[in-house]
Design a protein around this nucleic acid. Structure first.
Lengths: 169, 169
DNA sequence: TGTTGATTGACAGTATACTTACAATATGGC
DNA sequence: GCCATATTGTAAGTATACTGTCAATCAACA
């Protein structure tokens, strides 16, 4: 909202939720990359590894729904993870369009090893707040993301995405 | 944090602050673009226009500090705004390295006209929350972004960035 | 004055994050 | 079985968001 004079100041930017979300995302990625630099893994690559670990044999389309990540971009992410030998793609016998995703041994080991570092990175993001405020912020944010799910171009579809899974391979 | 069995589940993603910030950023951009589609303006382009309006004759480096936006990427943003005739670049007489940024008449008019739409977009992002919760979330987020400012690769330098301004052109 | 070091904008490279379009393949209705 | 429709992965195009590097320029100092 502008003030009563409708004068446009930098407050139109600094106090806008959208600006704060963008800044916080920048900061979060920066902290994650810095903490995990020895593992050479980005936040999205980490999310993909966790999802593939949790749902071995998932395909790219379902993976995108599970981590709420655009399907087209995910193609590049999968490619990079494959180049780094963290995952492998296997053709499905039942559906020739589909490529099934699995962690390699190295990928599974990496995921196991990186967990404490990721936990530390996540904690660092909220560190400056008092513990009670951290809980409040997380609760409100979780609520808001959930209620706004359909507003995003790639809504999270954790459940339905996996309904038809497990019958291919 | 993982549970006591250290089993890796999707909760390692879904409950992580970093994931929530990413989701919220996706949602915020999506809402902004959707509301402002008739104006063909992105959130960052909007922030740049506001900053140039507030500080006519600013250069690209200072602009990047004022909106906490990477200097390299900002070059492309400026280029697009110039192509759309919303801003113009003029060489500085005092410093041949610098190009001074100004809104065009059309750019100023666009900025004036888009304000209500941007306000509506910003309001929509927090709409699902109760009014009291919106205030709480905004306050905590503002605090967190401020306290984490130095953690980002492009810290906000609203004040210092403008200290040496106004002597060129 | 002249040279060193900093600043500025531009560029190349990587990685999200989205759009639309397309060919190969699969599915459901007939 | 055949065909319209849908799904899947891929690719091209746009826009952030960052890393580096580089040449031109400027500023400060010996």
């Amino acid at each position: 909202m502008q003030n009563k004079n409708s004068a446009i100041t930098m407050d139109a930017v600094y106090t806008a939720p959208g600006y704060l979300f963008r800044r916080m995302q920048q900061i979060a990625v920066s902290i994650f990359i810095e903490e995990c630099r020895t593992f050479d893994l980005t936040p999205v690559q980490f999310a993909a590894l966790v999802a593939i670990h949790t749902h071995p044999g998932i395909d790219a389309t379902r993976l995108s729904a599970v981590i709420a990540f655009d399907r087209s971009t995910l193609g590049n992410v999968i490619e990079r993870l494959e180049t780094k030998h963290h995952i492998e793609r296997k053709p499905s016998r039942d559906d020739k369009r589909i490529k099934l995703l699995y962690l390699t041994k190295a990928g599974a080991a990496l995921l196991r090893d990186i967990m404490p570092t990721v936990d530390r990175a996540q904690a660092r993001m909220l560190q400056p707040l008092k513990p009670a405020d951290r809980k409040t912020l997380l609760a409100l944010l979780t609520q808001l993301v959930d209620l706004n799910n359909e507003a995003s171009r790639v809504p999270l579809r954790a459940e339905d995405a996996l309904e038809h899974l497990g019958k291919s391979g």
